[in-house]
């Protein structure tokens, strides 16, 4: 406590929930580790050329199954392609699908949860049954059909998989949003705003939403990891990305048959995929712990 900077941060002003959470997060090593990992992965998805100068599509059969070299860290696969370059470039489509499908799911979940929680009654009953119905279908089974239906021939499948996962994975976000809106709706500040004449739109988006959004964001962080894994599963089964697209799921699917001869093309995309999912799970857990001190 002798540290003057520590004393300086003690302010007379009551801190907000987000401020409290941030000061907890700042001291959490797991949060920093996962945040750094997430940033590296995002950078890899945006600018793969920062990580490798090799072109993942220029392959020479002469290099088939060659071991690691200085330039190609992970060696070459059965087509003579640079495994490191392919793994790095695989981040692009995997992350893109994960990110956009989670955004879509978040938007649907936000609107469903907000409407169900705020209006209650018959609207809540109808919307909640809708959520139950979508939850009643195992994700992969519905995704296999929907994704196959949405992607046309010759298409790389990125849009199809993004839309599929967005349409099928919003339920948990909607449920969490609904229950936190129900909790926030009864607070005094909402009644006060209503008495001052705020309309439903203003009440929902200016007063209730900011106070109900934290658990929702946590669910979305976890969902991002799950959707990246789901994309890999769909691509593995042949109804996900295809053609020119490059994703870890596709690479695993291609490398699996040759694992006996060359393991590197199987192991590295698997490791990157697992590390990405792990990073998002740890980040989500850390944020949840910071926002919900009860769970500790």
């Amino acid at each position: 406590m002798s540290d003057p900077t520590m004393l300086a941060t003690v302010d007379e002003r009551p801190r907000s929930l987000a401020g409290d959470a941030w000061s907890d997060l700042r001291r959490n090593k797991i949060f920093w580790a996962s945040a750094v990992l997430v940033l590296v992965i995002l950078l890899m998805a945006l600018l793969p050329s920062l990580f490798t100068s090799a072109d993942p599509t220029s392959c020479a059969l002469a290099n088939k199954h060659k071991g690691p070299t200085g330039a190609a860290l992970f060696g070459f696969d059965s087509q003579g392609c640079d495994v490191f370059a392919r793994t790095v470039y695989g981040a692009g489509d995997s992350i893109q699908v994960g990110l956009f499908s989670t955004l879509a799911a978040g938007l649907i979940g936000l609107l469903f949860g907000l409407a169900a929680g705020y209006y209650g009654g018959a609207i809540d009953a109808v919307l909640s049954r809708g959520i139950d119905i979508v939850l009643g279908i195992p994700l992969l089974l519905a995704a296999v059909i929907l994704s196959a239906r949405l992607s046309g021939p010759g298409d790389d499948g990125v849009t199809a998989v993004t839309v599929t996962l967005g349409l099928l994975t919003w339920t948990s976000a909607a449920r969490v949003m609904r229950s936190s809106v129900v909790a926030a709706k009864g607070q005094d500040y909402v009644s006060a705003a209503r008495m001052l004449g705020a309309g439903p739109g203003r009440l929902m988006f200016r007063h209730i939403l900011p106070n109900a959004i934290a658990p929702f964001m946590v669910v979305l962080t976890l969902l991002l990891g799950a959707n990246i894994a789901a994309e890999a599963t769909l691509s593995y089964l042949g109804v996900g990305l295809k053609g020119d697209a490059m994703s870890w799921g596709l690479q695993i699917s291609e490398a699996r048959r040759q694992a006996r001869v060359a393991a590197a093309p199987l192991v590295w995309p698997s490791a990157f995929l697992a590390a990405t999912v792990l990073a998002f799970i740890m980040l989500g857990d850390a944020i949840r712990d910071a926002f919900d001190p009860k769970l500790r």
């Binding site: 890999a232 599963t233 799921g249 697992a274």
Partner: peptide, 11 residues
């Protein structure tokens, strides 16, 4: 939790 089955099974 971080290991999707597409990673776990082939590996």
């Amino acid at each position: 939790l971080a290991m999707p089955v597409v990673v776990l099974a082939p590996v």
